[in-house]
Design a protein around this nucleic acid. Sequence first.
RNA 1: GCCUUGGUGGCGGAAUUGGUAGACGCGCUGGAUUCAAAAUCCAGUUCCUUCGGGAGUGCGGGUUCGAUUCCCGCCCAAGGUACCA
Length: 948
Amino acid sequence: MFFGTHCSENSKSSGAFTNFAHVQHIFNAMDYNHNEIDKKWQQIWAEKGTYHAPNSSEQPKFYVLDMFPYPSGAGLHVGHPLGYIASDIYGRYKKQKGFNVLHPMGYDAFGLPAEQYAIQTGQHPEKTTAINTSRYREQLDNIGFGLDWSREFKTTDPAYYKWTQWIFIQLFDAWYDQSNDKSRHINTLIDHLNKNGTEGLRAAETETLELTAAQWNAMSEKEQSEVLLNYRLAYRSESNVNWCPALGTVLANDEVKDGMSERGGHPVVQKQMMQWSMRITAYADRLLEGLDRIEWSNALKETQRNWIGKSVGAALFFDIKNYPGQIEVFSTRPDTLFGATFLTLAPEHELVDAITTDEQRAAVAAYKERAASRSERDRMADTKTISGCFTGAYALHPINGTLVPIWIGDYVLASYGTGAVMAVPAHDSRDYAFAKYFNLPIVEVVEGGDIALESYDAKSGKMVNSDFLNGMDCMDAKGKMIAHLEQIGYGKGATQFKLRDAIFGRQRYWGEPIPVYYDNGIPRTLPLEDLPLTLPAVDAYLPTEDGEPPLARAENWTYNGLPLETTTMPGWAGSSWYFLRYMDAHNDAEFAGKASTQYWNQVDLYVGGSEHATGHLLYSRFWTKALYDLGHINFDEPFKKLINQGMIQGISAFVHRINGTNTFVSAGLKDQYETHPLHADVAFLQGDELDVEAFKNWREEYTDAEFILEEGKYYCSREVEKMSKSKFNVTNPDEIVSKYGADVLRMYEMFLGPIEQSKPWNTQGLSGVAGFQRKFWKLFHMGGAFNVSAAPAEKKALKAVHSCIKKVSEDIENFSFNTSVSAFMIATNELTDLKANNRELLEPLVRLIAPFAPHLAEELWEKLGEMGSVTHTAYPKHNESFLIESSKNYPVSFNGKVRFQLELPLDMAKDAIEKTVLEDPRTVEQIGEKQVRKMIVVPGRIINIVIG
RNA sequence: GCCUUGGUGGCGGAAUUGGUAGACGCGCUGGAUUCAAAAUCCAGUUCCUUCGGGAGUGCGGGUUCGAUUCCCGCCCAAGGUACCA
């Protein structure tokens, strides 16, 4: 047979070997024909359902999961499988360790790219989604993942989103009871209101309501429904939203980055709208607490903690001079109350107009207008400029009654806390800057800084100028002040969160319809038997002329003649619970059967990117907790252990065009001209050298391009960037697979470095792993034939194999896959040197490498004459007795510097070692005229002699 | 600014509780093989060196017989977050 497998020419894709027929050479059993072997085993696995995991088993369970991929039109690049390979290795390892391993895969297929494409082409997004998912599937299959494909689904399948809608309804029918610290069915709230009104009610709410039972019972159904929306976990309210005009939809906070939409980078503005939201803030404390019970990276936990942003302090009330109301402020530093020399309100604060004096009215109005005209983005971009305006009004200090001027300033945000702060310029840098700018008094109340120069923000120091707090440590003073304020009725302990409720409705087509209809303005949910509420056909995937979402275009978008909700769910809805569906993916009666969720329980190992820290990973924790509270599942954290895989970056290539010409200059000469860099496709490069012809044929505009060469070659400059189609630096895994085989891709991606680290994709090292695979295969062959000896192995070889077993097993447990690959290389090199081909050595080695290189392992397993799949065999255990050494080559140091080595028996006593070392002529030479001050002998480790 | 994670040869990266820094791989250099090349195999490869040694894990200190590892103070990079009171 003729193949071109080992040729080094850059072939583009599978089946391309005819392109380099000139380097074909004769194949024999010595060679590993990866194309044939990969396909053979992938087919056998699929036919036999090798990776199918039953929903009950004698074996302990293990649930491994990769973050839900969004199947984009670009297909997979080599960065995507990094995490999948790691989870696959771990899952296969666990399976060989005797676990019933669930490792499923599916697609998060609702979302903007498919919809944008639909808008451009008029094609139903369903079509592109189907094309993209099958492409993903094909690429995943090529890598040989041990996935249980019988559980595959897409979020866009009505059979799946039926249950996404059902969960929405559960959340709509729930409220958060703070007295029990859990969500409960809305009927329990209605009971409470019927009997007691809001008296004794402690609930997560949009605003605080005070109702007597009589008032509640006197309300119309519609009025009552509005009251209930104040408490439901899925609720509708008039709220300030991030509106993205370019996308024509609202976005959640985590979908906005630097005032721009995360997808597409379009400007986002603030707007008041009636919106569906999710009351995630009800869970703020539990989302924080749960972090202590899960094994996630510190960085990720910190990101979530920052996002939730809990601050503990006090609510304080200031009376206003000549005005009946009070101003409530939130402060984390009530201990500094005696240093509060003014109050600052957000320009939008509701009391501003009421308290402003006539003299200041014009100035305040002008300032308010100015502040309102500045977008959120401008305010963010420009935090250095200090601005504000005095209202003319004064508050009264709650303790000593002194007059405190009330200012407005846009450094105070209306949306956080009460939209008002007590300004303590001596101990808050923002207040300090404001006070300096407007020449307001600064009073030091905590010792430790120099307030003439800057504010002293640190939370330590003794209190001064603070009446009854003087001399106390400020952190102790904080508690005392709160107690005092509570006593005099001017404050209480309070907690604030940065976390906002999540906007849930999207003015888009390609999402799950929200299963709600409006009965005389009252939102009602569809009964289970009418789910799923499937996406209707529309004539265009655009808003209607009067700005209604696309679903408003659908004919008869009604339920029993009543209008249905026209917004759809956000991208994160379907991905917030998919890990539960995999447990029982085809259940038509429930979102997942109780027996299945109890058996599979939490995801034991979750692998994915850290970019989901404040979105998906927070929302799934929230839904899991809510489903737990409502009794649907029996665990309240979805992902027990999480590993963040790093990003694989691309190394972009640039050509340099001389400005205003079609002439390109090689990288080394570019500084001699005025040039502009342009991306060139990395496929045209061999090293840094550009294939000029390929480049010319790339695009019409380059056909006539001219090139200024260096030594007859055109070199590109290189830069590490995010791997992306638009940067032409993408490497497709299929290319690697067809050229080197799936196992080489798998091992190379692992060999690249620690899984958590980001690193550029560099194909140079691939040949090393390919060479290893060939060498490994050759251990089993001699003179062209499979050749494994039944004779017992020699000691050295046994030691090589068993130390490899030990190292690899430990490494897998520590997710240190790069060092496992090294360990395989070391063992293979040693066995090659020893010319060892004993079955006793090679058989366990095949089982050991199976998680990393499953195709290779299966093929060798079959050749060894073993029955069944190697994935069903036990993972090898090392035998410590093969590893025991009898002697140690001691490094002998003088003053910490190694001078020579000395081979000594390991069981030699300390004083005997000292004696031997001191008698050694090399020791005598090192000591020379000097004295031995001290001698350190650590048996089995080192010998150090201190001389001087 | 704050939080988190990092910083080791030409490159990707190793190094157990503090105990021979640079495993493994790439690249490079020399050699074998070849008409020649590719592939393969062998040897070498942290830097400096007067060939005795000396320096060396971002920088400066410290603890220790001994520090990539522990402590203190800085610098730099990546990611997250930001008038959050």
